[in-house]
Design a protein around this nucleic acid. Structure first.
Lengths: 213, 213
DNA sequence: TTTGCACTACCAGTTTCCCGGTATTTTTCC
DNA sequence: GGAAAAATACCGGGAAACTGGTAGTGCAAA
């Protein structure tokens, strides 16, 4: 917890110097925070962290020397109290969610406004999970972001999709619904076709990612 | 878009009268919105909507006559301009995400504070996707909410999990990684054991839901 | 240096899934 | 009431997945 009137120590990790400079100009003018350091590599930041309290780090994912996902994990491991706010051009739902799972407190795309960035910084420091509006949109409706159409499923298809995702086999589903195994097979086939995938692993992945399950 | 000084028309749909009453007390005192109607059934609300502009509806999921998921879809179908803000005791990630996919603009649990509710109402009306803090927490880190431990995966296991979720078969993965099919089979076996599931469908569902993919 | 973990590989048998479609009945909606 | 959509069922063959384990090598950490 920050003491009253103590400056927020903020670090920036991004492989593009112009991004760092822009962020410095924006954030450097705020009298409640101190841009304690800026880095173009993950390794340099990890060294910095050893001797410098960092309340929050604005972290890009694409770095020359490290995988941002692993770096995020490593930051949280070494300094659990440091908030990681991802600032990235990667807008894939999968990357967003994995970064959150690896300990990031928040995620914004680089096109977020200055106000949004500042707001997210404050929310993260307040202990909240924080997303920019565009990230919330991606999380809520990934298909809209990917310009894909979510397949329209019939009542029975939805039911069977859920049962498949619970790990039930075709014989088990047939038993539960009192239908022929061949009927279940046809529904599975139809599901694979509607989602344009070849097997159940890809089907379930897309269905969960598109918030159908 | 609301005209300046025009009251926000808000409806409440919940099967518990005490919840409705509490919300009315809270919201009824706000001079910028009008509690246009309260309903304990989905059907009644749909009838109401026909003749009454509703800018935002606070919607429970468990209703006596309808499935809240389908009701949400139906509301958005009949009146796309109406914001649906889910107010529910259901905290399962799966339900949250399905409601969002069905068109809800936001989601809060019933234990959210008055301030959070009001804030979410404003964000939803501003065209944003909005979550209470607890919902963001659940979305970001479902395992923490479910008091489950996310399995620790080795580097190879992660790689193979991703490839499986992309729909690749064991022979295909073996070819891609230059490993024996039997090696891939062992990794798959280990993944199933770590996640305590019986097949790949359940494996991928849990992995995506826990934000590992 | 030793121990433990990760990774690789083995393999036969059984079960399940996917593929190539086609066809009939029931339900829903206009 | 009719058309269209949804649901049900068919079925053999081949491929893939799952199951029951066991075992050896290399690397990392203590």
């Amino acid at each position: 917890m920050l003491e009253n009137n103590e400056l927020i120590q903020l670090a920036i990790v991004d492989d593009h110097p112009v991004v760092i400079e822009g962020l410095q100009r924006l954030l450097g003018s705020k009298d409640y925070l101190n841009v304690a350091g800026t880095f173009t590599s993950g390794a340099d930041f990890l060294v910095f962290m050893k001797d410098n309290r960092t309340d929050i780090v604005l972290l890009d994912i694409s770095l020359p020397d490290t995988n941002g996902m692993e770096l995020c994990k490593e930051i949280k491991k070494r300094s659990p109290g440091t908030c990681v706010l991802v600032l990235s051009n990667h807008s894939e739902r999968s990357i967003i969610m994995q970064m959150l799972q690896n300990g990031a407190s928040g995620y914004l795309l680089k096109n977020a406004s200055a106000d949004e960035l500042l707001n997210c910084i404050h929310e993260a420091l307040a202990g909240q999970i924080t997303f920019s509006n565009e990230i919330k949109q991606i999380i809520a409706r990934p298909s809209a972001h990917e310009l894909k159409e979510v397949p329209q499923l019939t009542r029975r298809e939805k039911e069977i999709l859920h049962l498949i995702s619970d790990g039930m086999t075709t014989p088990q589903i047939a038993g539960k619904l009192n239908l022929s195994q061949l009927t279940i097979e046809t529904h599975r086939r139809n599901l694979l076709q509607k989602f344009d995938v070849n097997n159940v692993a890809a089907l379930i992945k897309v269905a969960v990612q598109q918030n159908l399950i």
